[in-house]
């Protein structure tokens, strides 16, 4: 078990190194950092001096090691566009994106898992067919269209909810949160639903597929043959076994939540990391792009490590050694 976790950690470090390398290559090879940092009035001599000072003439490996070291120390460099420290820019945007992502994920799980279970247990029901058709349309509508539709209906036509921004936020120890005011929740609702819909359909279809497989397994049939009560059969026996693969995929889906948050943030002008990233692409602000990548990959890796731990907690085969 310890080995399993350690192995996953080593793999995570590898992924992080690869992403750091990607970010470094971006910084180093896409455009010339010196011309980006200096204005037209800087002389060639000054440029050369700066190049030497920043160590850009050092061997490649040396530069990469220093870059990684700086990342570990939390020194993320400066934005080409705003000249502000990137760390500060990103940090101020993290709460907005995380809250949006987590609320969306919770919505998708709260609706997706029960719907998946229902459609697996009643495969021929009318409601099941309706749900399946709806989700098929759900995965086919681009996130931005869902956002536009929600804005159009609830913002423009009905005028119930705000259509852009975070509304009122509350500062809690430097963390700017939407979760502690009605206003904040009102602003969060539409973007979170928009972001959650796509994940919801994926979760539902996955739970349905896995649950259908489990319901055909020998141990479920054996439990049926022993007259185990239906509720226990469905939830204690079948759903628990379904969750093992589902949890893995949900961890992987977290990447999807982050990616689609870029779109959602753009539609709702939600001031998160995604919007920052979009701006940085438009202005070729390489340091911000690179750091965004590293931060996203870090969250992804972190979530998947947590998933691995959950996995161990659920499945005794990973926890307890086989005697035979």
């Amino acid at each position: 078990m310890v080995y399993f976790i350690l192995k996953r950690m080593v793999q995570s470090v590898f992924v992080m190194l690869a992403v750091a390398f990607l970010a470094f290559s971006l910084f180093r090879f896409v455009g010339d950092p010196i011309t980006q940092m200096t204005g037209v009035e800087t002389s060639v001599k000054d440029q050369e001096r700066l190049r030497e000072e920043l160590g850009l003439n050092d061997p490649f490996i040396y530069q990469f090691t220093r870059f990684t070291g700086d990342l570990l120390k939390g020194d993320f460099g400066f934005s080409y566009r705003t000249r502000q420290p990137v760390a500060k820019m990103i940090a101020s945007r993290i709460p907005a994106t995380l809250e949006l992502g987590v609320v969306a994920l919770i919505i998708s799980l709260l609706v997706g898992i029960p719907a998946g279970v229902y459609t697996a247990l009643k495969p021929r029901g009318v409601l099941t067919q309706t749900i399946l058709m709806t989700t098929l349309v759900g995965v086919s509508i681009p996130t931005f269209v869902i956002g536009i539709m929600l804005i159009f209906i609830f913002g423009v036509q009905l005028g119930w909810l705000p259509t852009f921004g975070r509304g009122g936020t509350v500062q809690i120890g430097g963390w700017e949160s939407s979760l502690f005011s009605v206003d904040g929740w009102r602003a969060l609702l539409l973007p979170a639903i928009t972001l959650g819909v796509y994940q919801l359909t994926l979760t539902m279809r996955l739970v349905r597929a896995e649950m259908t497989e489990v319901m055909r397994s020998d141990y479920i049939r054996f439990a049926m043959a022993r007259g185990v009560p239906t509720a226990s059969l469905h939830y204690r026996h079948a759903l628990a076994n379904t969750m093992v693969p589902v949890i893995t995929i949900i961890g992987l889906q977290f990447g999807g939540v982050i990616a689609f948050s870029i779109v959602t943030e753009s539609v709702f002008q939600w001031p998160g990391m995604g919007l920052l990233f979009l701006e940085s692409i438009r202005f070729v602000d390489i340091p911000v792009m690179g750091v965004y990548l590293v931060v996203i990959a870090f969250f992804f890796v972190l979530v998947n490590l947590v998933v691995d731990l959950l996995y161990v907690a659920i499945d005794p085969r990973l926890r307890i050694k086989d005697v035979s």
Binding site: S217, D218, Y219, R221, F222, A223, M224, A225, R226, G227, V228, H237, A240, N241, V244, I314, D315, P316, R317
Partner: peptide, 19 residues
């Protein structure tokens, strides 16, 4: 089922709930 009639399956590897 279970009370008066019960059943044994072929493969002991798969007929018990692993969790």
């Amino acid at each position: 089922r279970g009370g008066r009639i019960s059943m044994i399956f072929q493969d002991p590897q798969t007929s018990l709930n692993p969790l």
